[in-house]
């Protein structure tokens, strides 16, 4: 499986956020997006998730389920956790499982050891717990491409470790991950897409197998 983007152009409010971005990410690869804030890292993730259409260039997922467009084969974990405080943790997870068509909520709970909180109302959760709940969806819903926007924000040390194992398992299973992050995820990045390049021309700089 291979996710390809060719000279993508993103525009927001009449201003060009980035142009001419190309990248490829194959099964088992982690592509990390780096760059200053506002360089368009999140915009690229949102573009792959089908939330905003590219003004130029095109994207392709080779080897995925061709009948579905890319967005349906992605999971996009953004800053907002999308949970309803009036419902319990289990109810929230069950809703997302039904909505995305299946997935056992136990996987989500176990991935970040949230089982004891299952029947708690989501309103009682701390920011970190809410973060773990959102990331738990990754373990529950089976989609090949993961789009993670600053996944480690708000996580403590062992949650970050749990996230690392989850990502490790996903990559070994042939999944693809694109993530924006400032810290080292502890997984060897097969490639970095640096948005800091001059005048919006981000280049894909592959890091050798060294580390």
């Amino acid at each position: 499986m291979k996710l390809i983007g060719e000279n993508l152009v993103c525009e927001r409010g009449g201003r060009t956020v980035f142009s001419g971005i190309s990248f490829t990410a194959e099964s088992g690869e982690l592509l990390v997006l780096r760059g200053r804030n506002g360089a368009g890292k999140t915009s690229l993730l949102r573009m792959i998730a089908g939330l905003n259409e590219p003004v130029g260039g095109q994207m392709e997922l080779q080897g995925g389920r061709d009948d579905e467009d890319i967005a349906l084969q992605c999971q996009f974990i953004a800053h907002q956790e999308a949970f309803k405080p009036a419902m319990t943790v289990a109810e929230n997870l069950q809703f997302w499982s039904d909505f995305f068509g299946g997935g056992d909520i136990l996987d989500a709970l176990e991935a970040f050891s949230l089982e004891p909180l299952a029947d708690f109302s989501a309103a009682l959760l701390s920011a970190g717990q809410k973060r773990r709940l959102a990331l738990g969806r990754l373990a529950m819903i089976d989609r090949p491409v993961w789009l993670l926007d600053e996944p480690t924000v708000g996580l403590d040390v062992n949650s970050t470790e749990q996230l690392r194992q989850l990502m490790r398992k996903h990559l070994d299973g042939g999944g693809i991950i694109l993530a924006t992050t400032h810290i080292d995820l502890g997984i060897k990045e097969t490639a970095v897409l640096d948005f800091n390049a001059v005048d919006d021309q981000a280049e894909l700089t592959s890091i050798g197998e060294a580390e």
Binding site: A49, G50, L51, A71, L72, C74, Q75, F76, A78, H79, Q80, E81, A82, K84, W96, F99
Partner: peptide, 8 residues
């Protein structure tokens, strides 16, 4: 953010 997730 629920609406965003629903678009996917």
């Amino acid at each position: 953010g629920s609406l965003e997730q629903m678009t996917l």
